[in-house]
Amino acid sequence: MEGDIAELGKYIGVGLTAIGMGGAAMGVGTVAGNFLSGALRNPSAAASQTATLFIGMAFAEALGIFSFLVALLLMFAV
């Protein structure tokens, strides 16, 4: 692993994309937390909104998956 500046940049880049997963984690946590606080306020309406919960989580999570994808591309495809 000595002396290859391109390799170095690649690994730094892969490490940096991992930060994106933290963002997705925050997003999913926000969705789930807000759903929970809403559901505890009005439990009777919660069951009808689980589909919306999952859609929201899927959208939030998709961006984390994008960062994972970028990491994989850097790691294996570049």
């Binding site: 899927a58 959208f59 999570e61 998709a62 998956i65 994008f66 994972f68 994808l69 994989l72």
Partner: peptide, 11 residues
Amino acid sequence: SHSIRLAGNMM
């Protein structure tokens, strides 16, 4: 996003 979400999660 529809396709990469599924494949990415699985992978």
